[in-house]
Design a protein around this nucleic acid. Structure first.
Length: 260
DNA sequence: ATGGCCAATTTTATTGGA
């Protein structure tokens, strides 16, 4: 079995005890982290390698930053998207692991509809699609991470309040659909078409306890990989307890190709 | 009552997140 997890960890240094315990307990084959908020040289590599994971890090001071942890060999690492400025945010990291092209994203938040950051978000999505256009949709590919988009109203705890707002606006949803249209399937929706499932809850107002969440972290899989996908779960337990991230991990499991 | 939090920073307020 190949298992791939995606987790916006909101500072890998603040979350290190949780992350290490979670790795030891759940042992995913691959973990894509977002918002590590640390430069490469300060990433807690030794502690993670001691648990058997190799680390590919694309960090940044204070903000953003993505990393891939893997129990299997990693090849063909790519950092940043075509057209990204030289000093761009660290938001895209890709690698080939177990024959699968794995792409880890931390999409821009966008702050507010109509803002400069909102325009940057939509432009970033166009660059992501341009990167995909250089890949073969017939292969085994997986795109996961914090998309900062709730694709449909059922992915939002209160669609009325959120209609047209950041994470939910039509242009953002259209930008994400353009990425999915490359040839992806939303793995969680494929296996849980009706369930109310969220991946992020605001720290404020006891939002998690009240069920005020949104589904903005996703695992998208190419058609060939979708055929191997047997489970997708959100690990809500990781949103509980002491010093949680505001996001829970999402984990997809794939049967080995030689299994029925 | 329509908001309550959290992390990083050449910190003690500001910025950004979502």
């Amino acid at each position: 079995m190949l298992t791939v997890a995606s987790w916006n960890i909101n500072s890998v240094r603040m979350r290190l005890p949780r992350l290490l315990a979670w790795l030891e307990r759940t042992r995913p084959s691959v973990v894509c982290l977002q918002e590590i908020k640390v430069m490469d040289e300060d990433f807690p590599r030794a502690e993670i390698e001691a648990r058997g994971y190799q680390c590919v890090v694309y960090g940044q001071k204070s903000y953003n930053g993505v990393a891939i942890l893997a129990l299997l060999p990693v090849t063909d690492v790519v950092r940043s998207l075509p057209g990204d400025p030289q000093d761009s945010d660290s938001r895209f990291l890709a690698a080939t692991i177990g024959g699968v092209r794995i792409m880890n994203i931390y999409a821009p938040n966008g702050q507010a509809v109509g803002s400069e950051k909102y325009a940057y978000k939509l432009e970033w999505y166009r660059r992501l699609r341009a990167h995909l256009d250089a890949l073969d949709p017939q292969g085994e590919a997986l795109l996961c991470g914090d998309f900062n988009v709730a694709p449909e109203d059922r992915d939002v705890w209160d669609p009325g309040q959120w209609r047209g707002q950041i994470l939910c606006s039509d242009p953002e949803r259209a930008a994400m659909r353009q990425v999915v249209a490359w040839g992806f399937t939303d793995a969680l929706r494929m296996l849980h078409p009706e369930d109310v499932i969220y991946t992020w809850w605001d720290y404020r107002a006891g939002a998690f306890h009240r069920g005020w969440g949104m589904r903005i972290d996703h695992i998208l899989v190419s058609a060939l990989l979708a055929r191997r996908c047997v489970a997708v779960e959100v690990d809500r337990a990781e949103r509980k307890g002491e010093k949680p991230s505001d996001h829970a991990p999402i984990v997809a499991s794939f049967r080995d190709p030689w299994e029925p």
